[in-house]
Design a protein around this nucleic acid. Sequence first.
DNA 1: TTGTACGCGTTATCAA
DNA 2: TTGATAACGCGTACAA
Lengths: 334, 334
Amino acid sequence: MPVTIKDIAKAAGVSHTTVSRALKGNPAISTETTERIQHLAQELGYTPSAVAQSLLTRRTQTIGMVVTTIADPFVAQVVEGVESVAQAASYSVFLTTSHNNPDQEMSVVETLHRRRVDAIIVTSSRVGSLYTSRLEQLQIPIVLINNQEEGEFLYSVAVDDRQGAQLAVEYLIGLGHRAIGYIGASNRPKSNRRRQTGYQTALQQAGIPLNPALVLQPVVNTDFKRGEAGLDLILGGQATAIFCYNDIIAIGLLMACQRHGINVPDQLSIVGFDGIEPAQYVSPPLTTVCQPRLLLGQTAMQMTLDLLNDERVHDSILPCDLIVRSSTAPVPDN
Amino acid sequence: MPVTIKDIAKAAGVSHTTVSRALKGNPAISTETTERIQHLAQELGYTPSAVAQSLLTRRTQTIGMVVTTIADPFVAQVVEGVESVAQAASYSVFLTTSHNNPDQEMSVVETLHRRRVDAIIVTSSRVGSLYTSRLEQLQIPIVLINNQEEGEFLYSVAVDDRQGAQLAVEYLIGLGHRAIGYIGASNRPKSNRRRQTGYQTALQQAGIPLNPALVLQPVVNTDFKRGEAGLDLILGGQATAIFCYNDIIAIGLLMACQRHGINVPDQLSIVGFDGIEPAQYVSPPLTTVCQPRLLLGQTAMQMTLDLLNDERVHDSILPCDLIVRSSTAPVPDN
DNA sequence: TTGTACGCGTTATCAA
DNA sequence: TTGATAACGCGTACAA
């Protein structure tokens, strides 16, 4: 049993009210008793119960975070950003996983509500209209990361997929490439569409006609295999550069190229998206569009804090950076 | 304001006691009112307050997890294991980071205590004698991951560093290697020592004399640079195989080899430790000793549950697996 | 079958 | 300067 103010009160021979006041330096209490009680509290190792305080204040100083899985390094860094800002603001974070299972996602939201979290942050979910109604019923701020929905209590922070993609493709164009392919991931329809739009925009602005034969949406199980499937784009000699939906696809493509004796970047330039750790260790190190994952989390938590302080907030779209490494080179002249 | 049982009581024209009982199917309440109340609760979107329940039961069904950083994929997967087992047992997890700062670690432990978590799981900390006393004062189970200390409330789950290292070196010996080097990381004294012990044990059991010139503990900032420093072991032609403290070191060594035109695995076999994701994407894919990270987390949480159920538990040491990829090959005969 | 009263740990109000 | 009391939301012993 943790020490309570009553224990201290008993030990000090005063009422628990006095203890409560003394502990928070209420000037109404005499300096002498205040010091005596504070000393006693220290000695007994007293820590106030946030549970009791929450019951009274109806604030738990707690936020719930819903992710698909923490094992994904992308998600992990977002969580890191959220937690650091939360901790600095004296908020604690409940971390829950949904494993991409809508039922489980509903269930963890219920749990978070049971625990009376002050707000909820959801990352890469498919918050459906299914239960936005329930979310709104909770009457607490919900901040969505990389996933925008409309709704009264729904706010969002997202990365600018279109801008990031455009950045990558413009860079390739700057290197002299004209036959630039795109390998997409149709299982992430929204971001895939936006990245493809960025790809197309860059081409159009450079006056390069779109070639549908250069756009691939492989229907396979894993991103890695999607990358391998992209080999078709180069084997026929159609493309001199390929922009991939994400880094794993790019790495899959890169390794397929190695097996087929295609030299990267001399024969083919490859650009990924995300900025995951492995990208810097492959050979050659991968040029990629880096999502500001930490910032994504920090921004989401800061927005949450603003909402909790009844400040006006606006949805946020964060730009990506291009990290140039060695998987890209000027188009071979021939 | 969330709906309370009093709200329901008012709406149903009964006392809040009746509501409380009806909601948990107390047979003392008539079937009719029970149904009426349950229906009403559903309609109003009632969810019991875990806060109020906790105050009553003195159990929060909550555990606190302390990690250095979540951004480390290793840690992330451990957290994943903890969370999944916790969720299945109706426990929620507070995730907190210490960033390897002892003060912050103390402070998050204080916060967790304020929140009256039922138990604490700490991973890769340097729980010092500094505050083990405080931990014991909390009177709640503390489970340490990959870090063993002695103490009344301290339990631990760890990976068998020695066994893992031995596995790796025995494999190299089996490939015919005799001149096997070790690159350590002196900033993790404990695990480094244990892995080195495993390395030495394997050599001794094979009757291979220890050669101190083959053991390196580079004093540089990053693991990656440690790996690069390991180049010395091969440039002089002393070693035909190198076992590294972890994967990042191994990857650093691998890439240094590439720059110096040293063919892996033909001229040098390399084995890493950890089983991080990038290890499978380097060229050649890295042979490594894989830590069961998910299991580490699951075991820690299961142990915590056992402790909370007043069952006897014993500290746990989990074996590692060797994952053979392409960075290792039989010793070249010459 | 249902209601009253009390307590969990804390804080705020009012009284002394 | 201090203390008694009520309240937060819930569950339970006891009473009706």
